[in-house]
Nucleic acid binder design. Structure first.
Lengths: 134, 134
DNA sequence: ATTATATTTGCATAGTTGTGCAAATGAGCA
DNA sequence: TGCTCATTTGCACAACTATGCAAATATAAT
């Protein structure tokens, strides 16, 4: 997901082998940077706004959805961009942001799949409603 | 997502209308509380650990995955529980936490669906790779 | 009751984050 | 060149967060 990342030394090389195989992708998919980016109400509002725009949206236009300073909006959009949620394109003196629908959806679905794969009786994917004890 | 919540409205029947209708569910699905909970490396480590456990896991057991104080682990697990990511069950003097696989997956997929529905040419769902400009 | 184990809570603290304002940059236009 | 508009950056500050340690609670075992 995240665009350019300084490669965190998080994971230890041979961390737990036994029950690890199925959940291996989880580590990569569960990127705190993505979730942190989505963890702020103002940024969520901006993301929804961008999604509703159906197409590129300038910083000023995006700012219409929330009552914070324009500079704050600029920072939030940059952060969402860094997290890989938005793409940015410069057109003249304005910056056009748009939602990276495909990337975002793929990341979320991959995560869901990976989590599901860890579910004790997760083999019955997508079938019955109550496949997992919860 | 969040444990006790007024039942998010499913997908709108007529997908894509004036541009605003289709994204209505997004507001409900994009819950900052969930993402904030997943936005911390230690909590992610705990979640992965819990997923690997394949079944209930005590606070002490979960703590094995990260080098923070047990009290911190306790707080993180409580937070994940509040966010609806984990379920908790008390057994004697230990508390068993487990991943709410179903809820979590459903939330992520619903979110992916909802985002995709906002995509300008999102009608081609799941078909081609590059359905969306990004 | 006493002791031991599992978890939680109170408090202090260092670090991070969201915010506004003012100034700076950048890009088009007269 | 100046002028205007869109966006970003520097700075300060309040609020929040993650953390560790010590003490408190809860439950089980002796």
């Amino acid at each position: 997901m995240s665009k350019h990342r300084p490669r965190s030394p998080r994971r230890s090389p041979s961390r737990r082998r036994a029950a690890a195989t199925c959940c291996a992708p989880l580590d990569a998919l569960l990127d705190p940077r993505l979730f942190r980016a989505l963890g702020d109400p103002t940024r969520i509002a901006l993301l929804v706004r961008l999604a509703r725009c159906r197409g590129p949206c300038s910083v000023g236009e995006a700012a219409a959805c929330c009552a914070v300073d324009l500079s704050v909006v600029s920072r939030h959009l940059a952060l969402l961009h860094d997290a890989g949620v938005l793409s940015a394109r410069k057109k003249g003196r304005t910056v056009l942001y748009s939602v990276r629908y495909g990337e975002l959806c793929r990341a979320l679905r991959a995560l869901a799949d990976s989590i599901e794969a860890c579910c004790p009786n997760g083999a019955a994917r997508r079938r019955s409603k109550g496949e997992c004890h919860e």
